[in-house]
């Protein structure tokens, strides 16, 4: 059966605390922390972007499966922060891994669900027999406008998954997608920061689609929330995943393992994929995992995985997500953060 043969995560070391951002804008930090359940978020260094994080996450994924990179037949990076407007990110990744030239490569974009889109496409290319292995990465160096609520959560990180048929560490039991046209969040061409519909991003957007996809996939396979050991949802803030989990009938303990957002922030295309990596880091053979992404615009992809015996051999071959989240952190002041994120207008 097809599934994940290798996975890897990457999180930059820089962090900024909610208090540090709130101080600049005169916002009430305690209420933000309570309301959004956020403490701090990751920030990329000036030398990190979607491409560099994708390469590192993918290298970690390769370390867990030890396959020949030349056997990777497809490479997709899902992101809303591709460093080039025109010129693929995926070619750099494919070249850095040594997967070129016999490889299909594309950059995907669908707000925060671009990462799972790549997983969906790669999985189905493997299923069709067209490729032996395929690599899908969800990565973002998200930007929230200064002072906007998004600034407290927009973070950076990447998760990579290699799919194949042999030596699978997590078998894909089912996939499902749920999509409508819902303008809850967008960024027009040539605009630096995105805009959003405020509370419209909640019920008709995030909740409707995540619930739709979760219910859809469970109906499709005849499973119920209690059949899963772990679940991870897209994590735009700390609160939404727990609320949607409750709406669906999941318990807190099923959600907590993949819930990284309070210390990581919203890594957009990397969000639910990173949650999945944190779950795979600890899941035991036989465990069943549900992942439901969400991308504004809007849609959700859902996957059900069952962890195999082989996971025990692969898990320790690369850094674990919680280690990346907790170790070697460097806290930034807002000024440094503004410089790193190119929010300071300089002479040209």
């Amino acid at each position: 059966m097809e599934g994940i043969v290798g996975y890897g995560a990457y999180i930059p070391r820089n962090r900024i605390k909610v208090e540090e951002i709130a101080k600049v804008w005169g916002a009430d930090a305690p209420s933000y922390k309570r309301g959004l359940m956020l403490e701090e978020k990751s920030v990329p260094s000036p030398d990190q972007d979607t491409i560099t994080m994708s390469v590192e996450a993918a290298k970690n994924a390769l370390m867990r499966c030890l396959i020949n990179p030349k056997e990777i037949g497809a490479v997709y990076i899902g992101s809303e922060s591709h460093p080039y407007a025109v010129k693929p990110s995926g070619t750099v990744l494919a070249e850095a891994l040594g997967a070129t030239p016999e490889v299909h490569t594309a950059d995907l974009e669908f707000a925060c669900k671009a990462g799972t889109e790549g997983m969906y496409v790669v999985l189905n290319l493997v299923k069709s027999g067209d490729i032996k292995y395929g690599l899908a990465v969800g990565a973002d160096t998200s930007q929230g406008a200064p002072g906007d609520a998004l600034e407290y959560s927009a973070a950076a990180g990447a998760a990579a998954f290699i799919f194949g048929r042999e030596n699978v560490i997590a078998t894909t039991l089912e996939t499902y997608s749920y999509t409508t046209d819902t303008p809850d969040f967008w960024r027009r061409e040539y605009q630096y920061y995105p805009q959003h519909g405020g509370r419209f991003t909640g019920d008709p957007a995030y909740f409707k689609h995540v619930v739709g996809a979760a219910k859809g996939i469970m109906d499709k396979v005849g499973m119920k929330p209690s059949d899963f050991d772990y679940v991870t949802f897209h994590q735009p803030n700390g609160k939404f995943p727990f609320r949607v989990g409750k709406m669906l009938g999941f318990e807190k303990k099923q959600i907590e393992t993949g819930w990284l957002v309070n210390k990581l922030g919203n890594t957009y295309s990397g969000s639910s994929p990173l949650g999945l990596t944190a779950i795979l880091d600890v899941a035991k053979p036989g465990d069943k995992v549900l992942i439901v992404s969400y991308g504004s615009g809007a849609g959700s992809d859902a996957f059900i995985f069952e962890v195999t015996e082989r996971m025990d051999k692969a898990r320790d071959l690369a850094p674990k997500t919680r280690e990346l989240l907790d170790n070697n952190k460097c806290y930034l002041e807002y000024g440094e953060y503004a410089k790193y994120r190119q929010k300071i207008k300089k002479a040209t």
Partner: peptide, 22 residues
């Protein structure tokens, strides 16, 4: 580790390569 080494101005190519990390 794979990093961006520098950008060629505001509109030029992005130049990647190796750096060292602990």
């Amino acid at each position: 580790e794979f990093r961006k080494i520098f950008a060629e101005g505001e509109a030029g190519i992005l130049c990647y390569g190796y750096k060292f990390v602990p």
